[in-house]
């Protein structure tokens, strides 16, 4: 059950499956720690709806919805076979 990062419910943890951005932005995202296999949480949304803040590898990054749409994630509760979010490492 994969979905794009921008659709991840607030407060939910997920694992990055794939990044469809091969351009500069894709590389930038990877350098900042959003690589395949990384755990990521959608923390909050800016008041005007966009961008959103994500927790990844110990830091908080602001990413716009249209960029996050290129990041495919698998919500953690599906990984762990249901229930609520897995506790972070």
């Amino acid at each position: 059950m994969e979905q794009s990062l921008d659709r991840l419910p607030l407060g939910e943890w997920a694992v990055v499956v794939q990044i469809e951005q091969s351009s500069l932005l894709g590389r930038r995202l990877r350098e900042m720690g959003i690589t395949e296999g990384a755990q990521i949480c959608r923390l909050r949304q800016a008041p005007m709806g966009d961008p959103s803040a994500y927790a990844v590898r110990g830091s908080i990054l602001a990413i716009r919805a249209r960029d996050a749409a290129h990041i495919l994630v698998r919500p953690a509760h599906i990984l762990s076979g249901g229930g609520i979010s897995i506790p972070p490492r």
């Binding site: 932005l25 900042m32 803040a53 830091s59 908080i60 990054l61 602001a62 990413i63 716009r64 960029d67």
Partner: peptide, 8 residues
């Protein structure tokens, strides 16, 4: 412009 910014 792309927008990836750290919130320290």
């Amino acid at each position: 412009a792309p927008f990836v910014m750290e919130l320290p």
